[in-house]
Amino acid sequence: MRYLLLSVIVLLLLSCTKKQTPAIVLQTDFGVKDGAVAEVKGVIFETSPAIPVFDLTHEIPSYNIGEAAYRLQQTAPYWPRGTIFVSVVDPGVGTARKPVVLKTLTGHYFVSPDNGSLTWVAQKMGVVQVRQIDEILNRRPGSADSYTFHGRDIFAYTAAKLAAGKISFEEVGPKLPAGVVMLPYQQPVYENRAIKGNIPVLDPQYGNVWTDIDTSVFKKLQVRYNDTLEVKITHNDLLVYAGNLPYMRAFGEAGENDALIYMNSLMNIALAINMGNFSEKYKIGSGATWNITLKKY
């Protein structure tokens, strides 16, 4: 009886210490109107039904590598070490751009074409190593003649094998120099009592304008809540918007349909209209050619 009890305890301890299968988080510009996302998930499920699969988004604007890069760095810090992100915004699919897996200093993995999609996670989370996916060893069987759906045949398949422990990170493929393709963008700069930054993305649900001006740069203006700032937004150096806006803690501190400046959830400066849509009203876009200047009024 004693030995039976001991055996049960050992089995319980082993089950408690069993290594958990890491999650895969998917991001694409595929949309959900057809079966593309389901095909990707099917490949993962077929490789191992034990892999937890989650969606970051499948609504990245078509071919928008810059937004894919931003959404990865927006989301990844809130997932545990070991999580594997598959990001497929790949207008160069089937060409010479490299399929890679990036391991960051934070212990996350990013499976993606090396086309700029990894810009922000490489910069903010650090690079341990980058490996090029061996398309002979780590490609879905029977897909050699498929050139336009690497999201299913290479990226999802490799991520699934990695998550399931069927390959190690070293077995993904050959090691590359410790760097990835980086997108150019205007980093926030403080000079002459003003800050110039970039508008990398919009908040698509509400039309808020998100900038890359973080707290470390913004504090140089020595702004307090309810202070007014002069705001200018340019596109390709042409003025699109100019106005004086208050800096507030929350949307509800402004009157309905009034515009304001606030600190968003990523601790970057943003613009909004309380109960309205700033980007739609003023025809504001995002990307490397959209810049913003803030000056204390």
Rank of each mutant, 00 (worst) to 15 (best):
P22D: 03
Y241S: 04
T158Q: 07
E230S: 08
Q27L: 12
V8C: 12
D214P: 06
E253H: 10
F155E: 13
F110S: 10
A96C: 02
G66T: 08
E67L: 07
K295Q: 10
D34Q: 10
F251K: 04
G116F: 00
T211G: 05
V217A: 04
N274W: 03
M263A: 02
I273M: 08
L102R: 03
L13T: 14
T75Y: 00
V127Y: 03
P61H: 01
K295T: 09
A156D: 07
E280H: 10
L260E: 05
I51F: 09
P184N: 03
G94K: 05
N64A: 08
V201P: 06
P52R: 11
T106W: 02
G285S: 11
L238C: 00
I167T: 13
G31V: 09
E59G: 02
D90G: 09
K161W: 01
I261F: 03
V217E: 05
G31N: 10
S62M: 10
A164N: 10
L118E: 11
T95N: 12
F155Q: 14
G179A: 11
T106Q: 13
G82P: 05
G92L: 02
Y3V: 10
A194Y: 00
A242D: 00
R224P: 01
P22A: 02
A68K: 06
K41D: 09
A272F: 01
A156N: 12
T211W: 00
Y78M: 10
K41R: 13
D258K: 10
D227I: 00
H58C: 11
A122N: 01
I233Y: 03
S117W: 01
G243H: 00
K18N: 13
A76I: 02
K41F: 03
L229P: 03
R139Q: 14
L56V: 13
P49R: 14
P204H: 06
F149L: 14
I292H: 09
T228A: 01
Q74P: 02
G255Y: 00
M182W: 01
P141V: 06
Q222F: 01
T21Q: 08
L162K: 03
G151E: 12
T119D: 06
L245S: 07
I233Q: 05
F110W: 05
L11P: 04
Y147L: 15
I133V: 12
S143P: 09
A164M: 08
V88A: 11
I261C: 11
K33P: 04
P49L: 11
L266K: 05
I136R: 15
L11E: 13
I284V: 15
Y147C: 15
R224E: 10
N192K: 15
Q187I: 08
W290Q: 09
I233E: 02
L14E: 13
Y147K: 15
T28I: 13
Q186F: 10
I195T: 07
E171N: 14
F155G: 12
L202A: 05
K124Y: 11
G165F: 07
K220N: 08
N236H: 02
L56P: 07
H150D: 15
T148H: 13
L239I: 15
L239K: 09
N226K: 00
I213S: 07
T119V: 06
E191N: 06
E170A: 15
L239V: 15
V217Y: 00
D212S: 07
A160K: 03
Q20N: 11
E135G: 11
P177Y: 05
P113V: 12
G92K: 02
W79A: 14
T148M: 14
E171M: 09
A250V: 03
I213N: 05
I284E: 12
E253S: 12
S48G: 11
K295W: 00
